[in-house]
Amino acid sequence: MYTQALDSQGRDLVAAPPGEAAASAAFQARIDADEKVEPKDWMPEAYRQTLIRQISQHAHSEIVGMLPEGNWITRAPSLRRKAVLIAKVQDEGGHGMYLYSAAETLGISRSQMVEQLLSGAAKYSSIFNYPTLTWADVGAIGWLVDGAAIMNQIPICRCSYGPYARAMVRICKEESFHQRQGFEIMLTLAQGTEAQRAMAQDALNRWWWPSIMMFGPSDVDSKHTAQSMRWKIKRFSNDELRQRFIDITVPQAQFLKLTIPDPQLRWDEATQHFRIGPIDWSEFQAVLQGNGPCNRERIEARRAAHRAGAWVREAAAAHAAKHSGREGAQA
């Protein structure tokens, strides 16, 4: 589903270590020439670590992102909605798999990444620490959260690291139905009864600002943007992408005849952009630091799933060991 300005969550990057200046310069020249970097190519350690952090956080976000929506699968209002929601949640799982594989090409193992997630050491997108209280939240997530995700992810399709770029192409293709099904849910509710309209408005009220924050800190405070842009891991700044999302989404809300929960929102004729009121960054920081409404619940759900699946993993490994001789003979 999505990555938020994940580049903003790590340590500052260091200059090329002594002895690597020439190799680093050659590497940068390849990037500048729009060449793609592939797993076995030489790359600066900081480039490798930046990508491992970003791709694994992105993968974790897909996996944790299954939880808020999975919460509504058993209560979807129709068989059609249920089939769609299952397909969407399954896609998010698949996206996590593509991304974990891409990260593994950089030298981190799957079990290391799983451990980082379950121990709480790894970050994932702050948005998934909000609860899904009503069915309308499923619509709002598809429309806003997946919408913001697409805005973030499309530029990553041109990322300099080949495996990440290829995974993103696949993900973006699959993502567009996610946003459309969400908008369709919102549209149905918005055209429904008074209670349904109120439910849609309430979901928009709760998901608007967290979605806006998905783009990460303001450019003024985003310390990795410059380096990530030089390496062509990132193509646009957080604020550029955020503005693009706002400009596209506000008219969609108007079509739904729903109100964006921002009294200061206005159209700026001079710049031809919508201008929003101030973002409450203290909320963003609190959620990132583990104090969102559902942080503990999400990690505990992943831990429980991992524990509950242990016997399956063991059984599969035992079965594979037992049949390993035969399998080789078949080929």
């Binding site: 698949g94 798999m97 594989s101 593994e104 995974a167 993993r313 599969a316 079965h319």
Partner: peptide
């Protein structure tokens, strides 16, 4: 792409799903 599986048959089935 790639994936993890306990054996070849599971790899084919996971590849179908992923």
């Amino acid at each position: 792409g790639s994936l993890h599986a306990a054996d070849a048959r599971m790899a084919v089935e996971h590849a179908r799903d992923v």
